[in-house]
């Protein structure tokens, strides 16, 4: 559809505008390169995180065939934090696995992938993709993962805890810049690894039966895409910390804006909206609220209300 492409281009230009203004607004030209040095990694991190969240949430929704569930609502980022804390808990802060940022990150990703694909595919199978159950279990799991994480922290050596805190509380004002390059590369690699599976998403929107009927190996593809989602969420959480409802906002705005089933368009739309929301939000936070309120607070409040609206709207039909 030509109309959708025009909308995409419009979104793209808005994104470019917000990126440019974030990067160059109020720059003191006497210290130009210094300002760039400060702002560029942050900008890059936000773009990578936005890509991860926008991309993976939409994939996840198609797998589970519902538009109000996102990986974050099912506790994926809580799981990531738990994995990270457990790693420190088991090996101690002095261990080379933890001190080497890259190694720690890779370990986190590996453990996360194994645990998440096991846990979530088990839950999906047991509940037969019943969204209400999945959502309920997800909420419980979020709490459970967070509680286990808290217990571990309490039982931890105070020195370890102190050091851990610095890496654990990634947020928009404290972006984990050390791993930005590896995250960027990983995103690209993942994109190409899972490209073939992503191409099957259009057919998978028709549901399990129709997808199998049309020759898709549904169960295998679902598993692969679940791993893909998990990795992207882990990357985003490692970079900027957990932002619940972000995925919900981007995917649903994308679906309302582009009335189509085509994932090539929906995915681009979702990613662009994520970038736009994050960067514009951060711009406002930095220059209007002068860092007094982090952008994730706005996103959570707006997203929470939006979530309620969507649930109430959908419950007229069936969830």
């Amino acid at each position: 559809m030509a109309l959708n492409h025009i909308k995409l281009i419009f979104l793209l230009s808005l994104c470019t505008l917000s990126i440019a203004s974030y990067q160059f607004i109020f720059v003191n030209f006497d210290f130009f390169s210094f300002a760039m040095q400060l702002r560029l990694p942050k900008l890059l991190a936000m773009c990578v995180a936005a890509f991860c969240i926008g991309y993976s949430s939409l994939i996840f929704q198609t797998i589970i065939n519902n538009t109000i569930v996102t990986p974050c609502l099912l506790g994926m980022n809580a799981l990531y934090l738990l994995v990270h804390v457990s790693l420190v808990f088991i090996f101690g802060m002095g261990s080379f696995i933890v001190t080497n940022t890259y190694l720690a990150f890779i370990c986190d990703l590996l453990v996360m992938t194994v645990v998440a694909s096991f846990v979530y595919s088990y839950i999906f199978k047991k509940t037969k993709y019943n969204v209400l159950y999945v959502l309920l279990i997800g909420t419980v799991m979020t709490t459970m993962f967070t509680s286990i994480q808290n217990s571990l922290i309490r039982a931890m050596d105070p020195n370890d805890y102190d050091a851990l805190l610095a890496t654990l509380t990634a947020s928009f004002s404290n972006i984990n810049i050390k791993i930005i390059s590896i995250c960027f590369v990983l995103c690209l690699v993942l994109y190409f690894i899972f490209k073939k599976d992503i191409a099957k998403l259009d057919v998978m929107t028709l549901g399990r039966h129709n997808a199998i009927n049309l020759g898709i190996d549904y169960d295998k593809t679902t598993k692969r895409l679940l791993i893909c989602t998990t990795l992207y969420i882990a990357i985003a959480t490692a970079l900027v910390g957990p932002i619940s409802f972000m995925g919900l906002i981007t995917t649903n705005i994308a679906r309302t804006l582009f009335k189509t089933y085509k994932h090539s368009i929906l995915l681009s739309g979702s990613v662009l909206i994520a970038i736009l929301v994050l960067i514009t939000g951060q711009l406002i936070v930095e220059h209007i609220f002068t860092y007094s309120i982090p952008v994730s607070v706005f996103i959570t409040i707006a997203g929470g209300l939006y979530f309620l609206y969507l649930v109430l709207k959908q419950s007229k039909g069936n969830i």
């Binding site: 065939n65 929107t205 028709l206 039966h209 189509t260 089933y261």
Partner: peptide, 25 residues
């Protein structure tokens, strides 16, 4: 080809687009 009773399609998709999926294989 099989058609079952379980068809919960949530995406915005037109009749023609749906029928075109029949040609996917």
């Amino acid at each position: 080809a099989i058609l079952t009773q379980h068809n919960n399609i949530q995406s915005k998709i037109t009749i023609k687009e749906l029928v075109s999926f029949g040609r996917f294989p």
